[in-house]
């Protein structure tokens, strides 16, 4: 089985609203160009293309097919799509290279969350018989989860505010981040609750964006970049969709994925936690101690483009290897309500 490495990453600016269409073309054309410039590859060099996006978010059928225009798919290309975060598209692309079917792959995700009401659209990912017909919104569900931990003494409002403050301080150095104003913990705690027990800083912003990651077999990767980020483990696991039957203060699926991926002894971790308390759950599940640098990019609390924020965690973590600032890093992506499904990847210097 071939080893697989990340050789390139690019993203669109994380912004509250773009003027583009919901099929992502306007955001994707420049990021494709950027990643090709960086890797020296062209579209003819890509063996497999895979994307993550959602028609519910786009408000139209087959939006991912319209997005293929951004590729310039002639002669015909080898292409696939997942209706979830593009981190899972990366998993599919990883398999294609792993099995030797292709040597290179380009993975992309996009979403224009501003086109609709995001917290309402996300109700459509819930059980369709007894849950989605109530339209439980994503913020309401996260609030239930946050309160369980608060009242059990597993975390405090201050712990949550500290996650937000650290994220914003780091985002100040990330030109792609959406929320970049540093702020003190005390100031955050003085703010009113907006969805009791959540305050505004506990909730990731609504973001339009797109991201792209290029993968290559480890052999090929050495010709393309100086320090490829080799994926030494990538696994995903899922918890029950029945929200009321699982312990929402833990993430067993993250624990299981991390175990299977051989996580541990990393110096940097990029975590896909759209709510502050979810980062606390993930740190516990992944066994990340105080010495691990969490979300140096600022993370999803400073920009959460739907269907590419998880892929961007892998891209950001890989960038620490590509730029030579880390040797072994972890990336996490989530999908579904209250951390239902989780993917963990470990990347190392070749």
């Amino acid at each position: 089985m071939k080893d697989v490495a990340v050789v390139g990453f690019a993203q669109a600016p994380n912004v509250r609203r773009t003027h583009g269409t919901t099929n992502g073309v306007e955001m994707l054309v420049p990021v494709f160009r950027e990643v090709f410039d960086r890797t020296g590859l062209s579209k003819q060099d890509i063996g497999f293309w895979c994307s993550g996006s959602s028609d519910y978010l786009a408000g139209r059928a087959f939006s991912f097919v319209a997005a293929v225009d951004a590729i310039g798919a002639f002669p015909p290309i080898h292409e696939s799509h997942v209706e979830m975060d593009a981190a899972w598209a990366l998993y599919e692309a990883w398999l294609k290279i792993r099995t030797g079917e292709v040597d290179t792959a380009l993975v992309y995700g996009f979403g224009k969350s501003s086109a609709g009401t995001l917290r309402r659209v996300l109700a459509l990912q819930l059980d369709p018989y007894v849950t989605a017909p109530l339209w439980p919104d994503s913020i309401g569900i996260a609030g239930l989860q946050a309160r369980l931990g608060l009242e059990a003494g597993l975390w405090s409002e201050k712990d949550m505010a500290e996650v937000a403050a650290r994220s914003r301080a780091d985002a100040a150095g990330n030109p792609y981040a959406q929320v970049r104003e540093p702020v003190e913990v005390a100031e955050l705690l003085d703010a009113p609750v907006v969805a009791d027990p959540l305050r505004a800083h506990d909730i990731a912003p609504v973001t339009d964006g797109a991201a792209v990651v290029v993968l290559a077999s480890a052999e090929r990767a050495r010709d393309l970049v100086e320090r490829p980020a080799v994926i030494t483990g990538i696994e995903h696991r899922v918890d029950s969709p029945a929200l009321g039957s699982r312990d929402l203060t833990r993430s067993p699926s993250t624990e299981a994925a991390a175990r299977a991926a051989g996580a541990g002894e990393v110096t940097v971790a990029e975590l896909h936690a759209p709510f502050t308390h979810q980062e606390l759950i993930l740190r516990e599940a992944l066994g990340l101690g105080a010495g691990v640098r969490i979300n140096p990019s600022g993370g999803p609390l400073t920009g959460n483009p739907m269907f590419s924020a998880g892929l961007a965690r892998i891209g950001e973590a890989a960038t620490r290897i590509l730029d030579g600032t880390a040797e072994r890093v972890l990336a996490h992506a989530t999908s579904g309500p209250a951390l239902q499904q989780n993917l963990v990847a470990v990347l190392e210097r070749d």
Partner: peptide
């Protein structure tokens, strides 16, 4: 009620049209 969160701005289609709580009810 095992946990609850307050929905200050109900959305179209939700069970109650005035502000209400989502709750996990055993």
């Amino acid at each position: 009620v095992l946990s609850w969160s307050w929905n200050a701005e109900p959305l179209d289609g939700q069970p109650v049209t005035r502000p209400f709580a989502w709750a996990l009810i055993r």
